[in-house]
Computed example of a mutant assay.
Amino acid sequence: MATPHAGRLSGRRVASVRTLIGAVLAALLATLFATAPAQAADGQITGLAGKCVDVAGANSANGTAVQLYDCNGTDAQRWSNPGDGTLRALGKCLDVVDRSTADGASVQLWDCSGGANQQWVVTAAQDIVNPAADKCLDVRDNNSANATRLQIWTCSGGANQKWNAPASGGGGNPSGFVVSEAQFNQMFPGRNAFYTYSGLTAALGAYPGFATTGSDTVKKQEAAAFLANVNHETGGLVHIVEQNTANYPHYCDWNQPYGCPAGQAAYYGRGPIQLSWNFNYKAAGDALGLDLLGNPWQVENNASVAWKTGLWYWNTQSGPGTMTPHNAMVGGAGFGQTIRSINGSLECDGRNPAQVQSRVDAYQRFTQILGVAPGANLYC
């Protein structure tokens, strides 16, 4: 950039100014790189003191330690992020020893197995998180010396947990949903095979406004909010049907003119938001063009139908709240109001804070996976 009246400066003064500017820039760069990890290059994962995540001795044997080391450009420091939730070097996966979820569990290189201890999320905040443990990749004792072992530890935001990692090679998300299949699998590492990602994406067409309304942040927040409540209702997408079978006969309201044609005990909780009661099966079926009153078992036998019932409640029902969960998220009321609309009469206003906290914890975890802030008003 030209300096006004630069031609009036003597050569000596120009040199002096250049020297001063150079010194200022050098000081600024030194400050920046003292507080932030260096940028990743060529598949390196860089972190504390600008050093690299390194496979000890470039050894590809199972159980080889993963450590911090001066960056040297070798294959021992070349990591790929193929889009399936793994981080790979030398043909193997970054792995938590013994599938541990405890603070201080070391990481190692191991044959890729698809296990939850080999799943990692590179967040927008530069954390590398193992969702199964809900912990961050961490440099032991905040020690930047070569050969310091890496581990998992409760996420603290410290410099020893900040990384620059290669971008995912997964090639985007063909479904168009703001949650990719890899992210979905990271959210639900122990899910029941019934709850398929394809079933969820097939159901999205029933409510096209879901997770497509507002800014990119709002879209991701809504998806995270829905899935966090689903996580709580189903124990991490494990339970397809209500576990307390003693409750099954209680969900038939004979005061309804259509009664309970599938039987007194046929309307128990099913699906991702545990649809229950004959009148809810009737209303959901009418909205979706399905005979759920006559055949409620569709919800436990067809993944897409199950997901559609969850989306039906989310987008159209207020429950004990004052707004639908969809409107709560896109209107800015916050995650707490989605809890109120789903189970507020039993959980909100101090009735069951542990249950509320469970939902909030899942929501914060899922927004982290999606790389967005959770927003305000998390509690009800």
Rank of each mutant, 00 (worst) to 15 (best):
A2L: 12
P4I: 07
H5Q: 13
A15W: 13
V17H: 11
I21D: 13
L25M: 12
L28K: 07
L32C: 06
P37T: 01
K51W: 14
V53M: 15
D54R: 14
A56N: 11
A65L: 14
A76L: 03
N81C: 06
P82N: 07
P82M: 07
G85V: 01
L87N: 03
L94P: 05
D98Q: 14
A102H: 03
G104A: 04
C112N: 05
N117A: 08
W120P: 09
Q126I: 08
D127C: 04
V129E: 11
A132I: 07
A132C: 08
D134I: 02
S144L: 06
T148D: 01
R149V: 03
Q161R: 08
W163N: 02
G169R: 06
G170P: 03
G172L: 07
F184W: 14
T196F: 08
A203F: 05
G205K: 03
A211D: 09
T213Y: 04
T217Y: 00
V218M: 01
A225W: 01
A228C: 01
A228L: 01
V230C: 05
H232S: 08
H232A: 10
E233S: 07
G236Q: 04
V238I: 14
H239R: 05
E242R: 02
Q243N: 10
T245L: 02
N247W: 01
W254Y: 15
Y258A: 05
C260S: 00
P261R: 05
I273M: 13
I273R: 10
W277M: 04
N278T: 05
A283E: 04
A287T: 09
L292F: 00
G294P: 00
Q298A: 02
S304F: 00
W307M: 09
W307A: 05
G310C: 01
L311F: 09
W314Y: 07
T316H: 10
M323R: 11
M329P: 09
G334I: 05
Q337V: 05
G344W: 13
G344H: 13
S345K: 15
G350T: 11
P353V: 06
P353W: 03
L370Q: 06
L370H: 07
A373P: 00
G375K: 08
A376Q: 06
L378Q: 04
